[in-house]
């Protein structure tokens, strides 16, 4: 399964990634981060395709994306 990692120390909860995601994977958390923002979290992680659109628009370079490789998928 593809996934993203949001660096909570960097995320300022602007929500640009939330609207960038074509599959509604992301939303803003309802819990404060240590920096006082509502960081982005995966609410529908199973729908993530690893397309990187969220990371492309992230102004704080807080998102890293891991894409599931086809080979690994076949093994499963």
């Amino acid at each position: 399964m593809s996934r993203i990692e949001v660096d909570e120390k960097r995320c300022k909860g602007c929500g640009l990634c939330v609207i960038a995601c074509p599959f509604g994977v992301l939303d803003l958390s309802d819990k404060f981060s240590s920096t006082g923002y509502y960081p982005a979290v995966m609410v529908k992680p199973e729908k993530c395709t690893g397309c990187t659109l969220c990371a492309l628009v992230c102004p704080d370079v807080a998102i890293e994306v891991y894409k599931e490789t086809k080979k690994a998928g076949a093994e499963k």
């Binding site: 593809s2 102004p59 998102i63 994306v65 894409k67 080979k71 093994e75």
Partner: peptide, 17 residues
């Protein structure tokens, strides 16, 4: 198996903006 397809560039320092 997963592959990192988007990582923070080394062209930036580690300091949060």
């Amino acid at each position: 198996m997963e592959k990192k397809v988007f990582k923070r560039t080394g062209g930036l320092t580690d300091i949060p903006m």
